[in-house]
Design a protein around this nucleic acid. Structure first.
Lengths: 143, 143
DNA sequence: ATATAATATTGGTATTTATCCAAACTTTTT
DNA sequence: AAAAAGTTTGGATAAATACCAATATTATAT
């Protein structure tokens, strides 16, 4: 557990995992493709990478789902997105702007930074892109 | 003037321009290479790209310097770095951490966001990585 | 002023991330 | 079972980054 920096996967793969987390069930290649606006063959290939890294289980022609590791990681990814989006709204960006802005750079923000920002904000529970859970923070960890 | 989004150049090129801006004179390939820890041949090639995009003038075997466009752009790049670094220190990151963290994602933060953040902070004049000038903001523009 | 050293560029190659298309394959539907 | 829908494979491409070896240029030293 908790042995990740937040920088292990590429920007696009972050989107895949966040989507998978949101769906919380077995998802089909086409679902991902239409959500992310990429060719199904691109999805298949990306899924192969994510499976090789242990984030998803992919059964060809059947579907994908997050592994336990993938779930834990995706929980962090969503949390990071929410914290950063919330942060930007504190500086005059609209909810939509913040969310969009964050999507561009979130993959490069470390877990360490997010934990500090989150703590500094008092572990907020609501963001502009949805509720915030703290399962990936010090707080909320089943400790 | 001011017709850029802040997203026109890649992360590594941002570093080249910031360095060139800092030196503020003709710089040699080797200077850049040792600063950025890349092979001189890599520098030469990157410089060719930057020249093609109009940010630098490169005289082979002689050196590089920013064009006017490059200077204006680099001014923004430095400003962006400073604003973001300052921002992170407000959330419990040390100066060094902030600077390092920001270096990873700054290339993906838009000018629009920076202007809003800067305004929201009251156009601060000191950051953790140096003084902040506002030549790339609404404020400070010779208007 | 010329050999040598230092610096820079070119050409070739590689990796990572991301993407598409066409063809082949599997599953579902009719 | 045939057709349609969905998925995967194979082949290609592009951008960003980077290295090495070879070549070219400039500077230095004698």
């Amino acid at each position: 557990m908790e042995c990740f920096t937040g920088l292990e996967i590429s920007p696009k793969k972050v989107e895949y995992l966040k989507f998978l987390f949101k769906k919380d069930e077995t998802v089909r290649t086409t679902d991902i493709s239409s959500e992310l606006n990429v060719d199904p063959s691109t999805t298949t290939k990306t899924l192969a990478d994510l499976a090789a890294q242990g984030y998803v289980d992919h059964v060809p022609y059947r579907g994908v789902r997050l592994t336990e590791k993938g779930k834990e990681y995706a929980r962090f990814l969503v949390h990071r997105h929410n914290i950063l989006s919330l942060l930007l709204t504190h500086y005059g960006l609209s909810a939509k702007e913040s969310c969009h802005e964050v999507s561009r750079f979130e993959a490069y923000v470390s877990r360490n930074a997010i934990e500090k920002i989150c703590a500094s904000m008092g572990h907020p529970t609501v963001s502009v892109c949805g509720k915030i859970s703290h399962g990936s923070c010090s707080i909320g960890e089943h400790s």
